[in-house]
Design a protein around this nucleic acid. Structure first.
Lengths: 227, 227
DNA sequence: TCGTGTTTGTTGAACATTCATTCAAAATGG
DNA sequence: CCATTTTGAATGAATGTTCAACAAACACGA
C-alpha cells in the first residue's frame, strides 16, 4: 500500500517534472533529497553489503546528519524498500527503452533486450552488488520478493512473446516458455558471475556468452562468430 | 508463505533432533556438535536471512545454550565461514560423485553434471536460500568470495573439458570456454529463480529448461523432446 | 567397584558495543 | 513570522562476546 503510493508519487513527479524546474519548490527539493539518500544507500550496499549497511553510513555517504533518513523515510526498512523500488523501476525503464528503440524484426528486438542487460548504465559493479544484496534477503522478506518479481513479470511476458515469434518464423523445434526461462536464467546467472568474480570475467565477455547462447537457440537468425 | 514457513520449521526441527540415531547431549563428539550447529545455522539463514541470523537463534535452533557457539567456533564470523565451507564441500562432493557414477560418454557425463545441480539433496529451498544469503554478502567479504569461487574452479574446468570433447566429437561451431560459461550461468540463474520464486517454477521444470539449453547447444547429442 | 582429581563440555548471566529511532532545538527559506 | 527541513545528542533495544560456576566423562590408583 504505502510502497504503491510512493511509486505513484515518484512516477507522477518524474512525468510531470518540466525540463527546467529542478530545484524550485519544496516538493522538488524533497524528491531530490530522497534520490540522494537512495543513491547513498546503493553505495553503502555495494561497499559494505546488506548486513553492514547502517543508517549512519548512508547519512555520512550523503554528507548529511544522522537523523535525516528518518525524516525523509520513516524507517530503515522503508528506505531499503524505496531503494529496491528505485532500482526495479530503473531496470524496467531501461529494457523497455531498448525495446522501443529496436526495429520490428524479432531477432533485432531479442538482441536489444539481451543487450540491455549488459549496458554500462545497468550492468556495473555498484548496481549488481546492490541487486545481489537484495536477492540474498528476498526469501525471508516477502516485500523484497514481490518487488524483485514484479519487474520481471512483464520482462518474462515480452521475452516469451519474442521467443514465440522467433520459433514460428524460423521453424525451430523449441518450447517458447522454456526457452524464455532458460534465456532469463542465463542472463541472471551471468550477472551473478560478474558480481561474484568481477576480475574473472568482463561485461563484454558475459555479453558474448549470452550471444553465444542466443545463437545456439536460434542459429538461423543469429550469425555464428568466434568469441 | 504458509507452506514455506511450515517447510522451514520442519527443516529446523530435523536439524535440532538427533539425526539418524546420533548421540545427543553430553556424549556428542566435538565434530557432531559442530555439524549440529552448522545445520542450525543453515536453518537460520533460510528462515531469517543473513542479516537477521543471530547467535541466539542458532543456539536455540540447535536446542543448546547461548554461549555454546563461541566455544565450538570462536566467533560468529567463523561459524558462518565454517557453514559456507561445509556447503561448498558438500556441493563439490556431490557433483564429483555424479560424474564418477556416469559412464565414459561425454554426453552422459554432461547430463549427469547438469542433473546433479537439480538433485533433491542439493537443490532444495533450505540450501538454495542459504547459498543466496552468502552470495549477497560475498562482494563485501573476500573470504566468502573465495569460498564460493574455490568450489566452482574445478567445476568450471570439468565442464569446459566436457564441452571441448562434445564440440570435437560433434563438430559443433562453438567455443568451449564460452559455452561452459553460458551453461554454468544458466544453472546458477535457474537456482536463483527457484530461490526467488519457488512457487512459480518447480525443480523439475528448471531441470527441463537446463536440458532444453543443452539440446540447443548440442543438438546432435541430445534428443529434442517437448515439455 | 569405588573414590578422587582432572579434563572437557555446557550453561546463563553480565558486559560492552553497535545501531535505529526520537526529539528538542536550531537553521533555512518563503 | 511561519512552515519546513536539518542537526546531533539522548535513548533504548538488540546482540556478540566473555567468564565464573557447574556438570559430565574420564583417568587411575586402591
Amino acid at each position: 500500500m504505502l510502497e504503491q503510493d510512493l511509486l505513484m508519487k515518484n512516477d507522477a513527479a518524474t512525468a510531470a517534472r518540466p525540463a527546467e524546474g529542478e530545484r524550485r519548490g519544496r516538493k522538488a527539493s524533497k524528491e531530490t533529497r530522497r534520490l540522494q539518500l537512495i543513491e547513498a544507500t546503493i553505495d553503502s550496499l555495494a561497499r559494505r553489503g546488506y548486513s553492514e549497511t547502517t543508517m549512519a553510513d548512508v547519512a555520512d555517504g550523503a554528507g548529511l546528519s544522522r537523523g535525516i533518513v528518518n525524516f525523509h523515510f520513516e524507517s530503515k526498512e522503508k528506505l531499503l524498500v524505496a531503494t529496491l523500488q528505485h532500482m526495479a523501476e530503473e531496470y524496467s525503464a531501461h529494457w523497455r527503452g531498448a525495446l522501443g528503440k529496436a526495429g520490428p524484426e524479432p531477432a533485432a528486438r531479442l538482441a536489444a533486450l539481451v543487450g540491455a542487460d549488459f549496458d554500462r548504465a545497468i550492468c556495473n559493479r555498484r548496481k549488481l552488488t546492490a541487486w545481489c544484496a537484495f536477492w540474498g534477503e528476498a526469501r525471508s522478506r516477502p516485500t523484497y520478493q514481490a518487488l524483485c518479481g514484479a519487474s520481471d513479470e512483464a520482462y518474462h511476458e515480452a521475452l516469451t512473446a519474442l521467443c514465440a515469434e522467433m520459433i514460428e518464423a524460423g521453424g525451430y523445434a523449441l518450447d517458447a516458455r522454456q526457452t524464455a526461462i532458460a534465456i532469463e536464467a542465463t542472463l541472471e546467472g551471468l550477472w551473478l558471475r560478474l558480481m561474484l568474480r568481477g576480475g574473472d570475467i568482463t561485461r563484454e565477455k558475459a555479453h558474448d556468452a549470452a550471444k553465444t547462447m542466443l545463437t545456439a537457440f536460434f542459429p538461423r537468425h543469429f550469425a555464428r562468430k568466434a568469441g
